[in-house]
């Protein structure tokens, strides 16, 4: 994605958290400490714009573990670019999420 991306700080935090492997709602909330009700709209918006892909967990796995299938979020290629841009825009973010690039979309 080549267009200029600007994000609010909470959005950047959510992106970074997902980049670090926190892949579902409450996990992202817990790790970012974002206030009630902010994270989901961010996830919805990012997904709608194609920065995130929501994927249902394999039902077999969930069934075996005796729990409902989860919806995981992961960065898409544009999401990956967006995260990089966000890390440039907010330099201190990488201190909070040192491994933010770990689960970036594979090339």
């Amino acid at each position: 994605m080549t267009t200029k991306i600007t994000f609010t700080y909470p959005t950047a935090m959510a992106l970074a958290a997902i980049g670090e492997g926190h892949r579902y709602g409450f996990d992202i909330m817990d790790v970012t400490g974002l206030p009630d009700g902010t994270v989901y709209p961010i996830l919805r918006r990012l997904e709608a714009r194609g920065y995130l892909a929501g994927k249902w967990e394999n039902d077999d796995v969930a069934f075996r573990e005796g729990r409902p299938a989860r919806r995981y979020y992961e960065l898409t290629r544009p999401g990956d670019d967006a995260l990089k841009a966000a890390l440039v825009r907010y330099p201190r973010l990488s201190e909070l999420f040192p491994e933010a690039g770990r689960f970036a979309a594979s090339a």
Partner: peptide, 16 residues
């Protein structure tokens, strides 16, 4: 449906 499933999973996760 998708919405409900996602939230059930989230809450289940939080609970267990």
């Amino acid at each position: 449906q998708a919405w409900r499933r996602e939230w059930e999973a989230e809450l289940f996760h939080a609970a267990h």
